[in-house]
Simulated assay, not measured.
Amino acid sequence: MNPLLGAEQAVLGSVLLDPGQLSHLDWLAPDHFYRPVHQALFAALRKLQNDGHPALAAEKSVPLSWVTDAVDEASLHVRGLTAVYAHTLISACPRPAHAPVYGRMVLEGAIHRSITEHAIRLHQAARADALQGEVEGALHYADVLTGVLSDLARRWGTEPRPVAPATPPATAPAAPPPVRADQVAEDERFLLAVLAEQPSAMDEVVGWLRPGDFADPAHGQLYRCLGALHHRGEPLDRITLLWEAQRRGLLADGTLSGDQLTAICDGVGPGSAEWLGEQVMRFSVTRTASTSARAIRSLAENEALAPGRLINHALHALGPLDEVRTRWQTANGRQAPTPTAPVPSPDRPPAARVHAALARSTPRPVSPPLARPGSAPTPAAARPPSRGHS
């Protein structure tokens, strides 16, 4: 039997045997079940609980009406459910008192499934934006995925924080061929030509455009050479650019060739470095979103990965997209939104403890966080997430 199917049947069977178990499953929602018939039945049981069904007050045996009323209510929303299947669920439950454990198994399956679905949507939105030359769809679904991860972390009972996996996912699919590759390559070559022939144009893009934003690694290395010359205040033309490329070993290792660099510089015409840089950045956003989505999907499809680690690894995979988004907003003259502080709830850890945990997991380039005398900081990746429910 599929373990997830067995867990769904067991949790429903335990509630049919003991209606009081519903009070220990407040964190479990109907849509956490995979099968529609299980979703409808759990929603029906929850409705009977809210309506104050007499079975909830039964001290000894549970009346048969608890089962029949649940089946009748669920049958209004799904087809094929009979009392026979309800008794099958009852026989599938080893111990009714283990309902919270069975429920956590259902929630764990829902976490993997939900993250997979939202990662697929993010990937599809990124591909669609790349075709249309837009970024808003990908950024919207990235925000949706972030919100889903935060909600799942709350339900699972862990603090959402980006944590890098010990090893990259072994089953990560290969990157698909770039969308509109010819147009993107042409924009990159044109931008490099403008920057080589108009040294002052570097000031328009150097603050937010990075070598990694170029789809062609050779173009990214050439932009790195331009940035180095600009940073050192040295003259910038095709000769100094060729010399810088040679000093960095780009000609010797075959990354660039003299003919390739000459072809880029000879094709120069009037153009706006800022506009061309935004075109490169636009595709960088969608490409990064697609890469993050594939990485998250690969993580979510690993059933051996614990939910807390899956959520935190998925947040880490969204980090590069957040960094590119910030620079994209800078290029468009928009200020990046300031993250709001989380509002502590009564069943969450104290705010001081959460703040300390976040401080330990956030890099501080200027000064290290304060620590209590005689204690050593614990690496964030080495602390397993809490799994407790209140």
Rank of each mutant, 00 (worst) to 15 (best):
K60R: 14
W66D: 10
L41K: 07
H98C: 12
Q49L: 04
A43Q: 02
H38E: 10
V78E: 15
R79K: 03
V84H: 15
V67H: 01
N50F: 09
W66V: 09
E73I: 10
V37P: 03
E73K: 00
R79V: 12
A43P: 08
A97S: 12
L89Y: 03
R79E: 15
E73D: 13
G52R: 00
A83M: 05
D51Y: 13
L56V: 13
A70M: 03
L89W: 02
A92F: 04
A97M: 08
F42A: 05
Y85G: 06
D51A: 15
A55S: 09
L45C: 01
N50I: 10
T68K: 00
Y85R: 06
L81P: 02
G52S: 11
G52N: 03
L89F: 11
A97F: 03
S65A: 13
Y34Q: 01
A58E: 09
A70C: 03
A58T: 06
S91M: 07
A74K: 03
P94M: 08
E59S: 14
A44K: 02
P63E: 12
H38N: 10
E59K: 08
T68N: 09
L41G: 06
A40E: 14
R95V: 14
P36W: 11
A97H: 03
L48A: 09
A57L: 10
A83C: 07
S65Q: 02
A55Y: 01
W66I: 11
L64W: 06
A43G: 15
F33R: 00
C93T: 15
K47V: 14
P54K: 02
L41N: 08
D72C: 04
P63Q: 06
R95H: 02
P100L: 01
Q39H: 04
Q39R: 05
E59G: 08
P63A: 08
Y85F: 13
S65P: 00
E73V: 05
P54S: 13
A40Q: 11
Q49C: 03
N50Q: 11
C93V: 11
L64P: 00
D72E: 14
Q49H: 13
A83F: 04
Y34P: 00
V71S: 08
R46H: 06
H87R: 11
A83Q: 10
K47S: 15
N50T: 13
R79H: 10
I90T: 03
A92K: 01
A43M: 02
V71M: 12
V62K: 00
L56P: 05
Y34D: 05
V84Y: 06
A83E: 12
P63I: 04
A86W: 01
P100R: 00
S61Q: 04
R35A: 15
A58D: 13
P94D: 15
I90R: 06
P96T: 11
A40V: 04
E59R: 05
S91R: 05
S75R: 07
A97C: 04
L41D: 12
H77Y: 08
F33D: 02
V67L: 10
L81K: 05
A43C: 14
L81T: 09
L64H: 11
P96I: 11
F42E: 07
P96D: 13
L76C: 13
